[in-house]
């Protein structure tokens, strides 16, 4: 019944996830730092300027709550505060209460736990004392990039990225298929006589990249229909995740990176998110 499978494939390919736009409400933002009082206000002020997109035309914006070095002494206390405040967004930076921020090898206990337990997204800004951020970083969000290895159907990721993109700005929806994994499958296929390796490589790659491209097209159409004035561009490719994202951030002068961090199957951070979050220290990351 090869023909049956052929037609099922044709119809499955034609069945494409359509992007559903939903406005993301950000009414309350919690700023979590290990800074003394005045420096917290200064950090918050920079964040307010950076996230001006969250304020409306009249200047009215979300309610900001500062947590400085005196507000909590442990992860448990911080989690209790986050739960009691119930923010829509937590803004912080990596390696709270340690000097590990000087080395690009970890996020620190607080951010690790926050990203996995807090129900709201965590915005991880470059460390205020590190001095590593790009010149264009922390100014505004007119160039936002959503990154994933499975873009198709990820409406939540796109909706957050849309919410944080300044009107008139550019939203990059990027999907990088892991080249090493792909080559490993093709190497296996090359050992199966009944499958033509070149044919398989061509059609599998074409289909892998077609789906996210179609989804980007759907996002573009729906956002245009919603009269949201941002330029939506798709970047869909095969490559090495970390290398490609680093290159894309520099090439497109990205101001904010939006990525998923939760994984339904595990308690630890999503496989792609952790190495990216550790190494991409020059711009803010919005971790969902």
């Amino acid at each position: 019944m090869a023909r049956l499978d052929q037609f099922e494939s044709v119809f499955r390919a034609a069945d494409k996830p359509v992007y559903a736009y939903k406005h993301v409400e950000i009414a309350k933002i919690l700023v979590v730092t290990d800074l003394p009082g005045p420096e917290v206000a200064e950090f918050r002020s920079r964040l307010q300027s950076f996230l001006s997109v969250l304020s409306d035309d009249t200047g009215a914006g979300p309610h900001w709550v500062d947590l400085g070095v005196e507000a909590f002494r442990s992860i448990e206390e911080l989690l209790e505060l986050v739960e009691s405040e119930g923010p829509d967004l937590v803004c912080t930076y990596r390696n709270l209460f340690t000097r590990a921020w000087a080395r690009p090898h970890s996020l620190g206990d607080y951010v690790d736990v926050l990203t996995q337990i807090a129900s709201c997204p965590i915005l991880v800004a470059p460390h205020p004392k590190a001095g590593r951020e790009f010149d264009h970083a922390m100014k505004n969000t007119d160039r936002v990039m959503a990154i994933t290895d499975h873009l198709t159907g990820d409406d939540r990721l796109v909706n957050y990225a849309v919410r944080f993109t300044l009107p008139g700005g550019t939203l990059f929806l990027s999907h990088v298929e892991d080249e090493a994994q792909f080559e490993r499958y093709i190497a296996t296929i090359s050992k199966i006589p009944s499958i033509d390796t070149d044919d398989a490589k061509g059609v599998i790659l074409e289909q892998l990249l077609k789906e996210p491209r179609d989804y980007v097209g759907s996002c573009r159409d729906i956002l245009a229909a919603q009269e949201i004035s941002i330029d939506t561009r798709g970047i869909v490719m095969l490559g090495h995740h970390l290398r490609e994202y680093k290159r894309l951030i520099v090439e497109h002068e990205v101001d904010l990176l939006v990525l998923n961090t939760k994984d339904e199957d595990q308690l630890a951070m999503h496989g792609l998110a952790y190495p990216l979050a550790v190494e991409l220290r020059e711009i803010p990351l919005l971790m969902l």
């Binding site: 019944m1 037609f7 119809f11 069945d15």
Partner: peptide, 17 residues
């Protein structure tokens, strides 16, 4: 036979959808 293959396979995909 071709008709059943075309309509049957679409039926599966659409009803599952």
């Amino acid at each position: 036979v071709t008709a059943m293959i075309i309509v049957g396979s679409l039926t599966v995909v659409s009803l599952k959808r």
